[in-house]
Every structure is written in C-alpha cells, then in structure tokens.
Computed example of a mutant assay.
Amino acid sequence: MSNIPSGQVRPIGPWDSLTLKNPFRKSAGAVKEPFSARQRNQLLRRMLSLVLFFGIWQILCLVKFNLWINFSFLPSPIEVFGATVKFFSSNAMIHIQSSAGRVLAGYFFATILGVSLGILIGWFQKLEDLVFLPLELLRPIPAVAWIPLAILMFPDAESGMIYITFIGAFFPILISTIKGVEGVDMLLLRVGQCLGARQWDVFKDIVVPGAMPSIASGLVIGMGNCWFCLVTAEILAGRYGIGYITWESYVTSNYPPIVMGMLLIGLMGSLSSYLVEHVVQLLMPWRVTKKKTA
C-alpha cells in the first residue's frame, strides 16, 4: 500500500525516470499511430533513393558515359520500361508463376532439411562428425556447376531446376542453424539442468528458441539465394520462367529484357525475403528489435 496521502502526486525517483525513458516500453494507454512522421520521412528517403538511382542511370545512358564502365550499349530505364510493358501485355503470369513455383518448392525443401539437420548437427557431436565434412565439401560449389549433374540425376528439367534453387537456400539455412544452436548461452543450459529439466525439455525450451534468431537470418538469406540461383536453374527450362526469359534475351542479344528480368528477380526476391523476415519475427514475440537512429 502506498503511504502518500490522497490528492498528492508521488515524486518520481531515479528508477521511474529510467523506466519512462526506456524506448522499448509502451504505456498502457498509448495508441500507436498508423503512419508516424518518422515513417513518412523514411518512406520519402527510400523513394528518393530510387528516383536518384534511375535518374543517374538514365543520364549516363543518354550521354553514353564510357570511363572504365561503358554505358554506351546499356539499355536505359525508359527502354527497360518499354520492355516491361511489352512483357506484361503478353503471357507474363505464366513466367512469373513458373519461377515463383520453382523457388518456393526449392525453398520449402531447403527449410525443412536445413533447419532439422542443422539443429541435429549443432546438438549431437557424433552426427556432426559423420555428416558435416561431406556437406562442407559440397557447400562452396556454385549453382552453375550443378547443371550437368542435375541433368543426369533427375528425370525431367523441372526437378533439376527445383534442385538448383534448393541448393541455393540449403547451405545458408544449414550453417546459420548450426551456428545458432552452438551459440546458445551455456548458462541457460546449466540453469535448465539444475532445475531438473530433461534433455528433451532443454532441447525444445532452451536450445531451439535460443537458436531462432540465427535460424531466422539463415531463412532470409536462403530465400534471397533461391532467387539468386533462378537464372542458373532456368537455363535448363524449356519455355517458361523469368530466368529463362533473361537467358534467352542474352542469347538473342535483346538487351532491354535482360535488365527487365534482372529487376523483376530482384523485386520478387526482395518482397519474398521481407515476407519471410516478417513471418519469423511473428514466431519470436520475445525478441525486441532496437530502433535505429533517425
């Protein structure tokens, strides 16, 4: 019970001032603004960066800048925009759906296998001794080097393309998961053991949640790598895919669709990485992200 008489305001002590200044503490009656001035300024700065990027690119193409980097034959943003309009006025969705399906399939298998195997390797020393070295030998091999083996190993091109996108995501997820499990604070493990927790309880209640931030980073990087490997994978394609359009345009020396395909892959990769990051943040409600300085 408080000893302060009614009607008087309790003085704020040093601990209260620290609490009030805590940037991560939300007051009970606080209402979050739907779109704050900070967010508006952030959006404006990012839009300005895009305008500057495409504007400088257009100017360099117009003046045919040629000093170490040659812009004389590079398609300008206007030409790329024309190629994009032409692309979407035809059967664009077939190519987008084909590429997205391959990436999602490869990413799904990479997530299941990479996370489960990474947790087991990080937790069990004997399993690490048995399987980690062969995996580490395969990890540096670039995706393009897997094309001949993908043709030999799989009965159709579609399976081979999914396999190459799988390779792109698997190793970042695997390594991030292993390092996350190995990096769990030993003090937490000892506390759990001292409180009588069984090994399974320690594993599911301490190790897996403790490794989640590292696993989340691997999942985001793995999604980006899937799209990174898309053009390599769709060299095997017969007719459809954004990567296939990009490669076919290069072979036929039709340059604007090449840049269009690159930008589409970058856009779809960024959106899917953002979605993955948002989902894994929802799986970690205990994690507080520090706000950056404005």
Rank of each mutant, 00 (worst) to 15 (best):
T289S: 02
I215H: 00
K26T: 12
L44K: 09
G241M: 03
V208R: 04
P256L: 11
L20C: 02
P134E: 14
P209E: 01
A143Y: 05
F88I: 04
L187W: 07
G238A: 15
G192H: 04
Y250M: 13
I206P: 01
K126H: 07
P75L: 07
L117R: 01
F88A: 05
K179I: 05
T252E: 05
L20I: 01
I173H: 02
P155N: 14
G118E: 04
I141H: 11
I78H: 03
I162A: 09
E277M: 00
P134A: 15
V80P: 10
L149T: 12
M47T: 06
F73G: 06
E79M: 06
K86L: 14
C229E: 12
S253G: 14
A83K: 11
Q281C: 00
P77K: 09
V131I: 11
G238N: 14
Y163E: 04
M47D: 02
Y163H: 07
I245T: 09
P285G: 01
L283Q: 01
F35K: 02
M223E: 03
F170M: 14
F132S: 08
G238R: 15
N225W: 09
I235A: 13
V184Q: 10
S272G: 15
I162L: 09
G261M: 01
M284W: 00
G82T: 12
P75W: 09
S214A: 11
M212H: 02
G118L: 09
K86W: 13
A169Q: 02
A110W: 00
L127E: 08
L67P: 13
M262V: 06
G269L: 11
Y240W: 13
G241H: 07
P257Q: 15
L195M: 09
L60G: 03
S99E: 02
G29M: 04
P11G: 08
W247D: 15
V85R: 10
I173A: 03
M47G: 11
I167Y: 05
M186W: 06
R25D: 01
I94W: 07
T177W: 05
L117M: 01
K26V: 12
P142L: 07
V181T: 03
A28D: 06
S98W: 05
G222W: 05
K86Q: 14
